[in-house]
Structure formats: structure tokens, C-alpha cells
Computed example of a mutant assay.
Amino acid sequence: AYDTHAALLHLACNPEDTLRLVTTNFDRMFHAAAKHTKQKFHAYTAPMLPIPKNSRWNGLVYLHGRLPEEPDDTALNRLVVTSGDFGLAYLTERWAARFVSELFRNYVVCFVGYSINDPVLRYMMDALAADRMLGEVTPQAWALGDCEPGQEHRKTIEWEAKGVTPILYEVPAGSHDHSALYQTLHAWADTYCDDIQGKERIVDNYALKNPSDSTAQNDFVGRMLWALSDKSGLPAKRFADFNPVPSLDWLLEAFSDEHFQHSDLARWLRRYLNDPRLIIWIAQREGPLPSRNYSPLSA
């Protein structure tokens, strides 16, 4: 019953075991999941919220309050439930808006379990839009969003209009079947928790597949590229040593496609900039970059 909450708790921990997770639910399901998996964390309950910056936040934030274990009128009165509560939290007292603004200013955020018209999402994105109008530059926001077959383009436009990039999963027309989301979170958490072994398992699972069979709903080529990019080189060695030898189509198709853009440079290089073994191999170069105030980086 707590598998999805346990998966989110694992996914929200970085390699240093720092937890950064925000929920707008009032229930205590995360505490029950943590007890089941023997995971410990600190909880912040509204309106006493942390400052969401890298060095100051480690725990689970109940942005709209949390139900107390025992009857407690003070805790119940702090729950953000009614329109008046939202107005106080985001517009008048603005403690929730300040938290959300700092959150989007300092972190890449991924929404899980929100619909495009969710009032909570609207309040959050309105607070973010106000900051952007003042010239604030914020990292990309993402959302795991449901989508009926054939509606991908429309859904993408709706999400992007809110300043959020969607990662769509399919829901059969007329149903409320979100099993694809739950299965994705569980598989993602299992791979993430297993670290190198999880990435090597991806190589084992897909090395002998034809990369042309990869689809938007089952993008195993993307998973393979992610696994092979591990800085340890162990998943790549696993692929190189694979027996029988994987199809040449991996080299001719999947590995030769231009999957990444300039905006991905920071994501790929951030892990290596402090590594004395850093070597940069420029396989393609159209010409020199235009003259700007770039910090020099030699290879």
C-alpha cells in the first residue's frame, strides 16, 4: 500500500542521502512508508517551513500542513484547505508563495500526481510567473502528466503554457488508470537505489534489443544512453564486453543520433569539472563560439 510513497522517498534523496521532497497532501502516508522501509527523515510542517537552499534543507515539507496523530485544533487550523486559506498562504501572508519562489529559484522541480487544472498547481505557477515578470531566472520545471492517446500535442501545449515541461504517460480514454505512473516510479526507484548495478541491469536488459523498437512510451534507448553515461564507465564496459555482441544498429542509429543540445552541457559536465582526470573530446565542431564572456575550458 505504501510502495509509491516509498519510491518517492528514495527518488527524492540525493547521493549524499539528503532528502528534498515537498507534498501538498495532509495525510501521513510518507511517515507510514518510511516506517515500513526503516527510513528516517525530518518533517517540516506549514507554516514553519525551511529556506529551500542547497545547504539548509534536508527533509519532507508539508506545504499545506499535516494531520496530527492526535486531535489538535491548532494543527487543524493551520491546514490550507479553503479558498481563504490559499489566499492567506499565497497572496496575503505569502509564506507559501515565498517558499515556492525560493524552491523554483534554486531547484529543478518535478511535479508528480498533479493535473493540468489542479488549483494547487495554479497557485504555485502563478507565484513563479510573478517572479519571472520581475526578471528572475529559474531552472526548468517538469511534470509527470497523464494523457489520453492522441492528445499528446494538446497536453504538451497546455503544460508548457504554465511554464512546465511535461513527461506524459498514457491513460486509456475515459478511465482513471494511472498504473503506468506507479509502475514507472517503482522501476525508477529500484534502478536509482541500485546505483551502478541498476545501470548495468539496464545494459543487460536492452543490449540485444533493436534500438529501432524504442518508442516514446518505452524509450529504452534513452535509458541505455543514461546508463552508459555513468562516470564510472562500468555500464559502458558491460556493454562493450557483452556476449553475444550487440547489434551494429546501436552504433549506427542510437549512438550516432544527436540527442542532446547546448542546454545539456551543464548537466553532463557538472559531475566532471572538479575531476582531475577530465578529458573533453570534441567530436563535432562547426567553428569557434562567438566572442562572449565565457570562462575558458581547455582540453
Rank of each mutant, 00 (worst) to 15 (best):
D3H: 10
H5S: 08
A6H: 06
L8M: 01
H10G: 08
P15A: 08
L19R: 02
T23L: 00
D27E: 00
D27M: 01
F30C: 02
A33V: 02
T45A: 07
T45C: 08
A46S: 03
G59A: 01
Y62I: 01
L63R: 00
D73L: 07
L76E: 02
V81D: 04
T82S: 05
Y90V: 01
Y90N: 02
R98V: 15
E102C: 15
F104N: 14
V108P: 14
C110F: 11
C110P: 09
F111E: 05
F111Y: 15
V120K: 12
L128D: 12
R132Q: 04
T138H: 14
L144Y: 07
G145Q: 03
C147A: 05
Q151F: 09
E158F: 05
K162A: 09
K162S: 09
G163R: 01
V164W: 03
V164G: 01
E170M: 14
D177R: 04
Y182P: 05
T184N: 09
A187C: 04
W188C: 07
D194M: 11
D195V: 10
I196E: 09
D204K: 15
F220T: 02
F220G: 00
R223H: 11
R223E: 09
R223A: 12
W226C: 09
S229T: 07
D230Q: 06
D230C: 06
K231T: 15
G233V: 07
P235T: 06
A236T: 07
R238F: 07
A240S: 10
D241S: 11
D241G: 05
N243W: 06
P244I: 02
V245K: 13
L248Q: 12
D249G: 02
W250P: 00
L251P: 04
E253Q: 12
D257T: 10
A266N: 12
W268D: 11
N274G: 15
I279W: 12
E286C: 14
P296G: 11
S298W: 13
